[in-house]
Each structure stands twice: as structure tokens, then as C-alpha cells.
Amino acid sequence: MIQTDTILQTIALTKVYEGIQPVYAVRDLDLTIPQGSFMSIIGPSGSGKSTLMNMLGLLDRPSSGSLKYMGEPTETWEEKRRSQFRNEEIGFIFQAHLLLPEFTALENVLIPLQIGRNLSPARIEHAKSLLDRIGLGDRMHHRPPELSGGQNQRVAIARALVNTPSIVFADEPTGALDSTTSRSVYDLMREINREEKVTFVIVTHERELAGKTDRVITLLDGRLQSDEAPKESPS
């Protein structure tokens, strides 16, 4: 994990889809994310929040503007470097059902380690303890179809954390879950953020979930509409 004050910074970040009428998904966005933040990005659908998250997570390239990780511009990075950085420093939590169905819960969690060729008995123990911690210690040898939605989402969280990333992007992490399960998934993310100082960026359209984060970024038509700390923020 890299220790620095600002983990991620964007300068005039823009994503435009060319056509007869160019569509700006994200426009001139300046954003600074300090290390250890627990923040959310909200906005109506089509506001550009997923596009923004994909660019921040190095899954997509901006049309213009700059994106710096720990002060280093990423625009010039080759695909191999981007892949390696995603593997080592970034964790992703997608909406439910994005585990590999042919692999058990534990195997799914271990895959980022295998991609980075970092598998070792100690790290396997670490993965098991992660699963224990999220309450799936006794289900680690089950495959995703044999687990509930909430359990699968927790496996996805464990997978996002197994490589001890600096930053985790969560796209609608509770979108497919009932309210009780949502609550426990949120608690887990919050706990890891506090204990491990892992930065969390949660993309959601649920105002309730966003309201629990320390900072809420609101997007509208690809532009930053507001950037504020919610009143009821628990921290």
C-alpha cells in the first residue's frame, strides 16, 4: 500500500463520445481524493458516474484531461502497466453476480493473487481470514451459485481486498441486496476503511447509502454539481 496524502487527482477529466452530436459523459472534472477517504459519487442515471468510476479505476481512458495516481500521470501508461496497477493497487466491487461461477468462494478471492503471481501459503491464509471476517469461513468451498446474493457480494469484497489495494471502487455495491444485507455490506466496507485505511469510492444512486459516507460527490450531465460532507455523516 502506498502512503501519501492524495491518492488520486483528476484535472479537467473529460470523456466525450464522438458523433454527429458529441456526447459528454464526463466534462472538465477536477477532483482530489485523499488517501483513506470513504466517499460516494451519486447522480441520476446517465449523469456519468459509472463512466467516471471506470476512468478512475483505469478501466477506461479519458478523452482529455489528466488522471494522476500518487502524483503520477497515468495517460502514458501502456495497457500492461495499467493492468498491473489495477491488479496491485485497485480493488473493484461490482454489482452482485460478478464472481466466476466455476470457482469456489475462496478460489474467487485468490484470483487477483494468481493474476499477479503473488500466491503463497501465507496469502492463502490471509484470504481465508478475510472470508472468516466477512462471516463466510464455513462457506469458502462453495461456488457462487450455492451462495446467496449477500454472501456473493461479501466474497466480492474479500476479492477486492485480498491484494491489500490502496483504493477500492464499488459500483452499486448494495444495488441488488435487501436492506439488511445492504447494511452489513456497508458496515464491512466502513470497517475495512477505518482499520486498514483503504480508500473507498462508492458509486450509487441510493441517497441513503451515500448519506453514510464522509463525502458525497454529485454529478449531473457529466459535470460536478456538488461536493459536500453529508450532515448525518457518522464520522
Partner: peptide, 16 residues
């Protein structure tokens, strides 16, 4: 394709 997308997001290079 979804699985491939996840594997890529987690850092699997295109050649792999």
C-alpha cells in the same frame, strides 16, 4: 465475456 471483463478489471493482461 462477463468473466473475461472481471479478469481484465482485476489486472489480467490482454495477452494472458
Amino acid at each position: 465475456s462477463k468473466d473475461i471483463g472481471i479478469l481484465k478489471a482485476m489486472g489480467t493482461p490482454p495477452n494472458a
